[in-house]
Every structure is written in C-alpha cells, then in structure tokens.
Simulated scan of single mutants.
Amino acid sequence: MVKIGPIELPGFPLLLAPMEDVSDPPFRALCKSNGADLMYTEFISSEGLIRNAIQCRKKLDIFEYERPVGIQIFGGDEDSLSMAAQIVEVTNPDLLDINFGCPVKKVACAGAGAGVLKDVDLMVRLTAACVKATSLPVTVKTRLGWDDSSKNIEEVAERLQDAGIQALTIHGRTRSQLYKGTADWSLIAKVKENPRIKIPIFGNGDINSPQMALEYKNRYGVDGIMIGRAAIGYPWIFREIKHYLNTGEILPPPTVAERIAVCREHLLRAVNWQSQRVGINEMRGRYANYLKGLPNIKDYRAKLVRLDEVDAVLELLDEIQQTYASYEIERSPIEIIDYHTKAGLLG
C-alpha cells in the first residue's frame, strides 16, 4: 500500500497525469474504469481562479466516481497560490498538486511551472504557502531541473519534503528538453534511494507498454508511475500494465467494438459535461487516436469531424463498427505523442 496523507493507494499505483485539454472529466472517467488509481485535473492557473475565470472554474469539476482525484494548480506568486489553494479546498478534492513541471514558454517564462526550477528558494516558499493554506494533502509534480547544468532534483526533493509535501512526482527530463529525447530515470532513482526521503516518489516519462512499466519498476524502485501521453486515445494502457504486473501476461489489444464503445462513451460524457456543440468539437481531435490501426479509416474520420449532431455521430460510429466487425487490430507499440507540439500543454 502507498499512502499520501490519509489517501490509501494500492501497491505500485498507476497515476493519470494532468494534461491540458486532455485529462478532463470525460477522459478521466475512461481511465478510471480501465484501472487508473489516482487522477489529476488539467492544470489550473492560480491567477485565473482568483479572477473567477470561467474556464479555470470549470476545470474544478470533479465527481465521486473519480476518487481519489487531485486538483493541480500553477503559479509563481505566494499569495495567489495560497488563495487558489483555499478555493480548491472548497471543491473537496482528495489532494492538491502544484505544477512545477510545465515547460511551455508562456508558462515557464512567466515564472510558473518549470520556470520555478531556476529558483529553488521560491519553489520552497510557494510550496510552504500552499501547505499552510489548506488542510488537503499537498503534492508536487516537477522535473529534473531547468537544464543539464542545473539538475537539482535531489536538493529539491529534500526541501519540498521539509516544506510539507506528502508525495512527489518527477518527470525524467529537464525543462530545456521539453518532451524531446529520452526521459532519464536515474536521478529519480537517486531521490527514491535517499534515506532522508520518506514520502512516495512517482516516476513519469516515456512509459508506453506493460513491459516498460515492469522494467522501470524493478530498475528504479519508484513507488508508482504516472502515465501521460501514452494514455491519450488509449485508456486501456492502465489495465494492460496492471494485468502484466500481476500475471506476466500481455492482454490482447482492445477490439474494434471496445474502441467504438469508448468513442461513444467519451462523446456522451463530453456532451453531458459541456454541451452538444462543445462536446462534439472537443471529440473531433480524439477519433484518430481511438481508431488508429484500422485500414482505410481516413474517410470515416473525415466524416466524423464534420458532423455536428450527436445522433449522427453515433450512427456513423455504428457503421464503422459494422464495417470493421471482423477486423483484428495488431498490437504495436503505443505511440508517445509529441504532446507539446501537437495537442497543447502537459501539466
């Protein structure tokens, strides 16, 4: 068992990463049903919450079936983060997470996200301010450092633990790397091996298969792993990893019927959470991932993104299922999407 304050997670839990424009309630529901043990909202600007920005407030929506679930915020001002933490607490999540990892220029260069990695003292003050402002367990997600010359995660981990956080997730890249190259988990392992560290340490970066999850579990000794880009369009990654860790067996890939069922569920949840127009628009960018591997699917995808009525989309999904009813999708490595350039921001 892994504990984050009063939250009890199974041994070696699987976490869904906070991803802007991806990890909203409809998507989180799919990941939860496929085995995610702890999930996070899209990251939320502390300044936006304080200004009562509608978009930011909408991201606070959480539902009982998601628990345990954490709300992630970001910012570079102690007072703003404290006020945001108090606002978050009213919505009653299970924990509050601080984003010190987003590398995107408009966040990092504004002194938030991974930008705080350049000033460890500020990071500690921001964290301490959040811990003081809320009774929720406070956790942090961050990176190895700003660049190769400042990989300060070992110092950061100790100081954040001293500031009161109750778990730490480390992405195995620096800010300068963005999402390029290969994540280096060796420093994550050093943090975990530090006898001073008593809080759970979760690793993040590049996990895209059950075999890789087991390898990294054994090699680096982390308490659990956080999965981000590999889950986009493939929420089955959680059940596949869990099954492999428990049995050593590789599950078959989802059938066409399962893929279509997830498309339908995601669409209906998106429409119910937002509206028909918004839900349909948001789903248009997701069909390609769900239907990947089906031959000659391009024309169907083109039709899906032009439809603007739920019933019409559902009817076309039924047609796709019938067309490919006997087709078996071959297993291939799950593509790690270059999310920074193709989809938005990774929290």
Rank of each mutant, 00 (worst) to 15 (best):
L291N: 09
E155K: 12
E335P: 08
E258W: 06
V256H: 01
I188F: 02
P253Y: 08
I334L: 12
N34S: 12
I280W: 02
G115N: 07
E309L: 15
D21M: 10
S80M: 13
K141F: 09
E64H: 09
Y290E: 11
R301D: 05
E20F: 05
R67P: 00
I197T: 08
D97F: 06
D119N: 14
S23W: 04
K242N: 05
F74W: 13
Q72D: 04
G344F: 08
T323G: 13
P103S: 02
V107D: 08
D97M: 09
P137M: 14
A343Y: 11
K141Q: 10
R57P: 00
I71H: 02
I337T: 13
I201W: 04
V138H: 00
P252S: 08
T169G: 05
D308C: 13
I54H: 04
G113V: 06
L314C: 11
D61R: 10
S150M: 06
P68N: 09
Q166Y: 06
E330F: 13
P68G: 08
E265K: 12
M39A: 06
A53S: 12
K292L: 11
T174K: 00
K59T: 04
E20T: 11
P103H: 05
Q322K: 15
A312I: 14
D148R: 14
P295Y: 11
F74Y: 12
R51V: 02
R229E: 12
D206I: 04
D318T: 08
A312C: 09
R277S: 13
V305P: 04
M212C: 08
V116P: 00
I336F: 08
I250S: 15
L291P: 06
K198E: 14
P68T: 08
S326A: 14
L95H: 03
I250H: 12
F202T: 05
R269N: 13
M19P: 03
Y234N: 07
D223I: 03
D311M: 13
V156E: 04
L126W: 05
Q276P: 07
K132C: 13
Y40H: 07
Q211N: 07
L345A: 13
T182L: 10
Q321I: 13
Q321D: 11
E64M: 06
S149F: 14
V156C: 03
I201V: 11
V138K: 06
G224L: 13
K292Q: 09
I153N: 00
Y244G: 06
G101D: 03
G205Q: 09
Q72V: 03
S149P: 07
E8P: 02
L307C: 07
L14F: 03
V104D: 02
Y300H: 14
G48Q: 02
M39Q: 11
A230K: 11
A29V: 00
A133F: 09
G248C: 10
I73H: 01
Q166S: 14
L267F: 01
K59G: 00
V107G: 04
A133G: 10
P210V: 03
A343W: 12
L96W: 02
S186F: 09
A183V: 13
R173P: 03
K32H: 01
V310Y: 01
D318L: 06
T323W: 07
V90C: 03
I250F: 15
K217M: 09
I297R: 08
F43Q: 04
C109K: 14
K132Y: 10
S45P: 00
V90Y: 13
R269T: 09
P333M: 12
